[in-house]
Simulated assay, not measured.
Amino acid sequence: MSFDYRGKSDAKNNAAVHSWHGGSWIRCLARFSWECRLLGLCSVFCATLLPSLLTEAIAQPAEMSPLQLETKIALGDVRGRIDHMAVDLKRQRLFVAELGNDSVGVVDLANRKLLQTITGLKEPQGVGYEPSTDTLYVANAGDGSVRLFEGNEYKPNGQIELGSDADNVRVDPAANRILIAHGSGALAVIDPTTRSKVGDIPVKAHPEGFQIDHDIGQVFVNVPDAHGIAVVDRASQRQTGKWPIPDHDANFPMALDPVRRQVLVIFRAPAELGVFSMTGGKLIATAESCGDADDLFVDMKRGRVYVSCGAGFLDVFEAKGTTYRRIARIPTVSGARTSLLVPELDRLLVAVRTNAAEPAAIWMFRPIP
């Protein structure tokens, strides 16, 4: 597929204010301004030249940003919180869990428009598309159900009851299974062929973000209420380990770096990126991040990490060995904390809820270079 540059002007308006090299220029100039005032140096520099330098440092050209805003795809009359997303690559369709609207939006990415809206749901949190059976799975927090829809016109095609708080959905093609977080502490195991639940993997509390390492057959699970990360064996369907996380709380989003053999987690209290060794769970790096994050992704092509935050920012980190350095903080909208990196399309998609300035939309970013 091809992408045009219709959103280039939006990029200049919405991504102009970002930190360059982690905001070092801005912090340096701001500190100098403070020291001028402290010392009473009311010179021409402090009064006139310095403000213009600050403005120039803040308003960096959008082309310098590692993420270029290409376009915004309106989601229609969608109110309230938006949660996680999934993609059907063959049809180039994006599924958006519109939790506060009790709906799922279906977006045509190739033509950059809303295709249809699936209604009548109960606080959908997680979505997953399973290609071998051409089925969309929607996990509902409101009634604990997982609703199934056929993958073209999205007609209802079954329902699985999980009890309560059905949440994140992960498709595991290697094992021909679907894992869904739910309840007070379990991952439901779904057989996509029979469209039925075939097991539960218990963990110590409600599972939040989790990821599957297909090479070693392990599942890493954020369990914030149990103050740790659970390690689950996929074959035996049981927890085999726990990594404690002292001095950190609210570990919600997670991503894996299979090359560096690392598990990446964002904590909300304090707001930090935590990087763990996949073998043994040793915490090997931390870095300050934006607040209220709910998704993060590893861009393997560029050695970067993208974090979407409800505080109204995207943080971009550069990975070098075991160190992570923030290279940009890009403004979005307050509450825009969920996102999806689609490596096959080389795009980062951010879900932006309705706000005073504009309606709900998917903001499509192109990584640079």
Rank of each mutant, 00 (worst) to 15 (best):
E123I: 03
A186N: 12
E35Q: 13
P207C: 13
P367A: 06
P51L: 11
T332C: 03
S289N: 13
P173L: 02
V171R: 01
T240I: 15
M364W: 01
I368L: 14
M1Y: 05
H214D: 09
G22M: 08
L148T: 11
A139C: 08
G22H: 14
K282V: 11
I73N: 00
A15E: 02
Q125R: 11
S184M: 11
A186L: 05
Q159T: 15
A175I: 08
V221C: 04
G80H: 15
I190W: 03
H182G: 05
A174L: 14
Q125S: 13
F3D: 13
R304V: 00
Y154A: 06
Q60T: 03
L54Q: 11
G23H: 03
L283A: 07
G280M: 04
V305R: 02
I362Q: 01
A110P: 04
A59C: 12
N140I: 06
A235F: 10
G335L: 05
L69G: 01
R268V: 02
F317S: 01
M278Y: 03
E130W: 10
H21E: 12
R112K: 14
M254G: 03
G228L: 11
E344D: 14
Q239R: 14
R177Y: 02
L314F: 04
L38W: 15
V198K: 13
F365D: 00
V203M: 02
M278Q: 12
K122V: 03
E318L: 09
D294F: 12
E161G: 08
R329Q: 10
A30Y: 10
T323K: 10
C290F: 10
V352W: 01
A47E: 14
D295E: 10
V333T: 09
V146I: 14
T71H: 05
P359D: 10
G80L: 08
F297V: 08
V17G: 01
L53G: 04
T193N: 15
A74E: 15
G80A: 05
G241H: 01
D4T: 06
A351Q: 00
E150G: 11
A175R: 15
A139T: 07
E70R: 14
R302K: 10
R27L: 12
I330E: 02
A30G: 12
D143K: 11
P131H: 07
A186M: 08
G185R: 05
F267W: 07
D88P: 09
L179A: 08
V169L: 01
T323R: 07
A57H: 00
Y324Q: 06
M1L: 10
W243N: 04
V106T: 08
